[in-house]
Design a protein around this nucleic acid. Structure first.
Lengths: 200, 200
DNA sequence: CTACCTTTGTGAAGTATTTCACAAGCCACC
DNA sequence: GGTGGCTTGTGAAATACTTCACAAAGGTAG
């Protein structure tokens, strides 16, 4: 989060930013900003603040964004399309090297810059291309199945959009986004605590 | 999260579930399950576990899912399409009453069961339909602008997919999902702590 | 009806996270 | 080169969250 705002400040030509300013931008507190950043090192100058450009570079390094990550998208539906279209991925060094589906009516058809490939080839393609990250945009029923295949093929990280609890071995990183649950959280906020809380 | 698995168990006809079982399904601990549920009341029977069907109803009530929520989608792009297509929303009581865009080439065209409307009409439509929830699926640049208009029209909750920090007055609930940040989290997990952590 | 097995609900203990508060350091100005 | 106004970095205090552990039930079998 800090990185995004620092990049904005950087393109605006701002030289330094105080923890107070960053806190305001990110919706947190100055003390939190300082503690967070101090975990990785001592980047600021007392009396001045943090050097925007330099800190940006540091954070990109810390997050591993200096290299390019190859990503495969599994599931050529609407969510997959939205993700493939999203410029932010490429800007941040994530290159989509393949899109997969098992629907014969989709396989072989062009899809953005890529062509939809058969999910049956997924495992060997991952090994050949050595893509470490997969984005899962398929129905829940197939999710764990596909995950197991991805893990077998040597995937290292999975971003899951299927509303299912999936399990992976400890050496694989997993992050799940569940849009229905997000809306339910809002429903809860509206039902209770009416008018008492803001951002949740 | 508990609700989703309880609904599964319910359709499978299971009568009761122990905190241990729920913990396993949800990837947490039995003590955590009990503490979480006890916050809202005392639903279980000692020696037996929790009554699946009854607890499901309780949770739906607590989350405010017994009523129907009207939702407008702002932005008729790929993300908007993915969301509108998502059956889970309707199943959970979220009814999409309108889709808006400011692109003249999209306005008036059919879009799923709805027709894309002009964003200029957004404010008055919200007031007329009294939709309390908006899903924001538009580019970041316009996000805060549109949010301000939504707030002015009396929106009560916003689910934001634009990768921008937006601010709302305290009586409006806000939840943001940022897909680039999720991937960056995975990049971090892969760069550091190689092979030491699992799900993040 | 009693003994025993199971599982909840919950204070207390243990961790983790956030906030406080202030010494140390940097800059600018005189 | 000293003085004063800022701002960081960081131990310590405060707060929040998770886990432990066990008394208080509920059920069952004999």
């Amino acid at each position: 989060m800090y990185l995004r705002y620092l990049e904005d400040l950087d393109t605006q030509g701002q030289q330094t930013a105080s923890s107070d300013e960053l806190a305001h931008l990110c919706g947190t507190t100055p003390a939190q900003v300082r503690k967070d950043l101090s975990f990785f090192g001592s980047f600021g100058k007392r009396g001045l603040g943090y050097p925007v450009h330099e800190l940006t570079a540091h954070l990109r390094e810390i997050l591993g964004l200096e290299r390019e990550w190859k990503v495969v998208i599994v599931g050529a539906g609407k969510i997959g399309a939205a993700l493939a279209n999203y410029r932010g991925f490429r800007q941040r060094g994530f290159r989509i090297v393949g899109v997969y589906d098992h629907d014969p009516s989709k396989i072989g058809k062009p899809w953005g810059e890529a062509i939809v490939r058969d999910m049956a080839d997924l495992a060997q393609d991952i090994q050949r291309e050595e893509a470490p990250i997969a984005v899962l945009a398929i129905p829940s029923d197939d999710a764990q199945d596909v995950v197991d295949r991805l893990v077998g093929a040597g995937i290292r990280a999975i971003l899951n959009f299927a509303p299912a609890q999936i399990t992976v071995p400890p050496h694989v990183s997993l992050k799940s986004v569940n849009m229905a649950m997000e809306l339910e959280g809002l429903s809860f906020a509206l039902t209770n605590a009416m008018g008492s809380q803001g951002a949740v």
